[in-house]
Simulated assay, not measured.
Amino acid sequence: MQLRFAGEVIEWRGPAPFLFVRVPDEEADAIGAVSRQVTYGWGAIPATVRLGATEYTTSLFPREGGYLVPVKVAVQRAEQVGLGDEVTLELLIDGV
């Protein structure tokens, strides 16, 4: 499954502050429809993400009925993005 969408870089404070992009509802519904086939536990979905010229692997976090895409610090630095920036992400979820 390949998805492309834009979103704002937000902060979510769990045990430590992290930056994420919320998956829009329509794309989150599509991911939710295949989540049982691709999750490795507690709803996390492994994915390959492209932000600008940087591609990285991560896991989508289930949160409040949708998903959050982590934006790793190395990616933030490489692409010069931070809290409040609007970014476009491409997601690849294998196995579907």
Rank of each mutant, 00 (worst) to 15 (best):
P46L: 01
V81Y: 11
Q2T: 06
V21N: 06
V73P: 00
D29L: 13
E55R: 08
E64Y: 09
G84R: 01
Y40P: 00
S59V: 05
E26Q: 08
G41D: 08
T54W: 15
V23H: 10
V87P: 00
G41E: 09
E55G: 00
M1I: 10
P62W: 14
A74K: 11
Y67T: 05
A28I: 00
D25I: 02
V75W: 11
L3I: 04
Y67M: 07
A78R: 12
G95P: 10
E79H: 13
R63M: 10
R63P: 01
P46Q: 05
G14F: 15
A53L: 10
Y67C: 09
V96C: 11
P70I: 04
V21G: 11
I10Y: 13
F61D: 03
G82V: 04
G82K: 00
L92C: 04
A44N: 09
E8C: 02
P24S: 11
P24N: 12
A6M: 09
V69H: 12
P17S: 14
A44D: 07
V38N: 08
R22Y: 01
D29Y: 10
D94V: 08
V75K: 05
E79C: 02
L51S: 00
T54D: 10
Q37A: 13
G43W: 15
V71S: 10
G52K: 11
D25A: 12
F18K: 08
P24E: 06
K72Y: 11
L89V: 01
A53D: 10
Y40F: 15
Q2L: 06
A33L: 13
P17T: 11
E86Q: 12
V71P: 04
G65H: 15
E79A: 07
L83K: 05
F18P: 00
D85F: 07
G82C: 03
D29N: 01
I93C: 01
V38D: 07
R13Q: 14
G32A: 08
I93D: 05
R13K: 15
L3P: 00
A53F: 11
L19N: 07
L51G: 00
W12T: 06
G65I: 03
A6E: 13
R77Y: 08
I93N: 02
T57F: 05
V21C: 05
R63Q: 11
A74W: 12
W12M: 09
G65S: 06
Q76T: 07
E55H: 03
F61I: 05
Q2R: 13
I10D: 03
V69I: 13
V73M: 02
V87I: 04
P70A: 14
E79D: 04
Y40E: 06
P62R: 09
E79T: 01
W42Q: 12
I10P: 03
P17V: 10
L19G: 00
L68Y: 02
T58W: 15
A33N: 14
E8T: 09
A16C: 02
V96Y: 06
A33T: 05
L60K: 03
V73Q: 14
L60D: 05
F61T: 01
F20E: 13
D94N: 07
E86L: 09
K72T: 06
V9K: 07
P24C: 09
D29E: 14
G65F: 15
R22K: 15
D25V: 10
L3V: 02
A16L: 14
A6Y: 00
L68K: 00
P24D: 06
W42N: 10
V87M: 05
D25T: 06
V49D: 02
I45C: 08
A28Q: 12
L60A: 09
